[in-house]
């Protein structure tokens, strides 16, 4: 690697570390609830401590199935060929998300504390 390339590489890795520190600060708490958004609008919220199976009808018309099990939420199936959201890891910490782009669905985990703060502001 040339000198400038090495500098770029080191700079980017430093940026990554910085980014991880910030996200670690936000995601350190366990989440108590998940919120489901379609096209940016909230369509429901569920506690993470009760197991359940939630069908979500998204913008593109097909349904995704979200499963809450053992305090974690994950997407069990999606009607699109991409299947990106199904491969995403289960969420259970504050601010973690699962995204389905074709259906414009975002599932977001939120800690109890965060929720109260939002209530104040």
């Amino acid at each position: 690697m040339k000198k400038k390339e090495r500098n770029l590489f080191i700079f980017l890795l430093a940026l990554v570390c910085f980014g991880y520190l910030i996200s670690a600060f936000y995601t350190k708490e366990e989440a108590g609830k998940i919120f489901i958004y379609v096209s940016g609008e909230e369509i429901g919220s569920y506690p993470l401590n009760e197991d359940r199976n939630i069908p979500i009808k998204g913008e593109a018309g097909f349904s995704n199935h979200l499963v809450i099990k053992g305090g974690k939420a994950y997407m069990e199936s999606a009607g699109c060929p991409d299947q990106i959201c199904v491969r995403e890891k289960a969420i259970w910490k504050n601010k973690e998300t699962i995204v389905c782009l074709p259906n414009k669905i975002v599932v977001e985990a939120v800690s109890e504390e965060e929720k109260e703060l939002d209530g104040v502001t």
Binding site: F9, Y37, E96
Partner: peptide
């Protein structure tokens, strides 16, 4: 583009992981 499409900027939390993978695979 994903942030715009789903109108949720919290998915920006994926950025560090994506930067890391972009840098390493790019190299």
């Amino acid at each position: 583009v994903a942030m715009i499409v789903v109108s949720n900027y919290h998915i920006g939390f994926y950025l560090p992981a994506l930067l890391l993978s972009g840098t390493v695979t790019g190299w």
